[in-house]
Design a protein around this nucleic acid. Structure first.
Length: 403
RNA sequence: GGACAGGUACCCAAGUGGCCAAAGGGGUCUGACUGUAAAUCAGAUGGUAUACACCUUCGGGGGUUCAAAUCCCUCCCUGUCCA
């Protein structure tokens, strides 16, 4: 297999914030590929996942997509569940300490996590491992040796510690163990390549490489993936921020949510979430920026590819069709909730009782805003008795079949 | 244990006796426009109510007052610093 082609594919979407580092990593990767081929073995790749939450969204799948690419070239992929590291929580992630989960919760989350991940990864070719299997066996003495590879300055100069330090926000001692544990994982598994987000740059490149070197093994190559922005197109995708695209909520939802990203976010999504080759992505980006493809059509193409990467051809096709019918043609979608009209109910009653709106006030407001239609007829008096069965439309997206 | 700073609506944040259902921003929703749920512009955004109005809400509880997010007491919680 052509080594340079592999390098191009594997480095696609990787970001280091530093061109020299990127070039160095690409070079390392190339050498490692050649070396492994000589030894007649596949590369060992892994990425660690935090099992404290169980709902995956597109952002989590960026690294999985990367792992999948390695799999497709016959390399050995380990899906590592960080059931031990989750005791600490990644300091990169949040300023709050994580709630400590029970072993059972973590095991359960780990399972559902892996299950969702197999929408991207090849189940047959994926090893699932838990880092508590080795980390929990380390002694205090081991920890002293491991941590003697690092200085406090190295940690404090990290951006996320630095900021908190400057703000007088707490920086806990045990947070520094995170990087050490992650480095030990890489050492224990003798990883050739470790994949992660750019927020993992320090953990992967500095900590893991240094620790592995000190242990006398070849340091892993780090592939740190760019961060996927959420549906707002600006801030990293996260469930807490509500800008996420869950992978388990159905093809239609996924298609629609991708369609709602701002135009300018299309290239990033193409780079991080599709199965396209580097050339495909480049062409797509050029076409979008150059205006040779209509932005709407470009986004449709993108939405279809992303949906199709998680769902079957048929499901993706249906999602696309449903989107076109509902939004482009403004037609009524085929699967809408139904409501049985009771005698004497007003528009407010129907909207409220069917759960279409949360309160009477909201119903009144929507009517006032010309958002409520029965069939083609605009409703102006919310207290009017509901006249007849039909399709009630509220705004662009809410429908109710009243019988 | 001590000192200090805080706890306000979905989130951030202003407000230090009445004009406060509570500024501003974000988010969300709606409308116009369009190329889509993009961008832009406009409006809405506690509940009940046709309306007058009423009810609930500024960490919990108690009090002062005609009137409290605002003053007093007490409790709980969060953070920083010192020990």
């Amino acid at each position: 297999m052509d080594v340079d082609k592999q390098v191009a594919i594997f480095m696609q979407g990787a970001e280091y914030g530093d061109d020299a580092l990127k070039a160095a990593m690409a070079k390392d990767l190339r050498e490692r590929l050649i070396e492994a081929e000589k030894e007649g073995r596949p590369l060992r790749i892994y990425c660690g996942y935090d099992p404290t939450k169980a709902d995956l969204h597109l952002g989590h799948t960026v690294t999985m997509r990367k792992l999948r690419q390695f799999q497709d070239f016959g390399h050995e992929v380990t899906f590592l569940i960080g059931n031990f590291t989750s005791l600490v929580g990644d300091p990169t992630d949040k300023d709050k300490l994580r709630p400590i989960l029970t072993a059972e919760q973590i095991a359960e989350n780990g399972r559902t996590y892996a299950e969702q991940a197999f929408r991207v990864l090849d189940r047959e070719k994926t090893k699932v491992r838990y880092n508590a299997d080795w980390l929990s066996k380390l002694t205090f003495e081991d920890l002293i040796h491991l941590s003697s590879n690092f200085t406090l300055q190295q940690f404090i100069s990290r951006d996320n510690f630095r900021k908190r330090w400057d703000n007088n926000d707490p920086v806990y001692l045990h947070e520094t163990f995170y990087a050490i544990m992650q480095g030990y994982d890489a050492y224990h598994m003798r990883a050739d390549v470790q994949v992660g987000g750019t927020d993992q740059l320090f953990n992967i490149v500095t900590a893991a490489r240094k620790l592995m070197t000190s242990k006398g093994v070849k340091p892993n190559v780090g592939i740190t993936m760019g961060i996927l922005p959420g549906t707002d197109g600006e801030i990293r995708m996260s469930k807490t921020l509500g800008n996420h695209i869950p992978i388990n909520s159905g093809a239609k939802d996924m298609f629609g949510k991708v369609m709602s990203i701002p135009d300018k976010a299309m290239p990033v999504y193409a780079k991080l979430c599709t199965r396209w080759t580097p050339q495909d992505v480049e062409e797509f980006e050029k076409a979008v920026l150059g205006g040779t493809i209509h932005p709407r059509d470009a986004k449709m193409k993108l939405a279809f590819e992303i949906t199709n990467a998680f769902y079957t051809d048929e499901e993706a096709e249906n999602a696309k069709k449903a989107f076109v019918t509902q939004f482009q043609k403004g037609a009524v979608p085929d699967d809408i909730p139904e409501y049985k009209l009771k005698t004497g109910e007003t528009f407010i009653d129907v909207m409220k009782n069917s759960g279409l709106v949360a309160s009477g006030g909201e119903a009144r407001r929507l009517v006032k805003q010309n958002a409520v239609k029965l069939g083609d007829e605009l409703i102006s008096d919310p207290n009017q008795e509901f006249p007849k069965a039909g399709i009630l439309k509220v705004g662009k997206r809410r429908y109710l079949k009243v019988k």
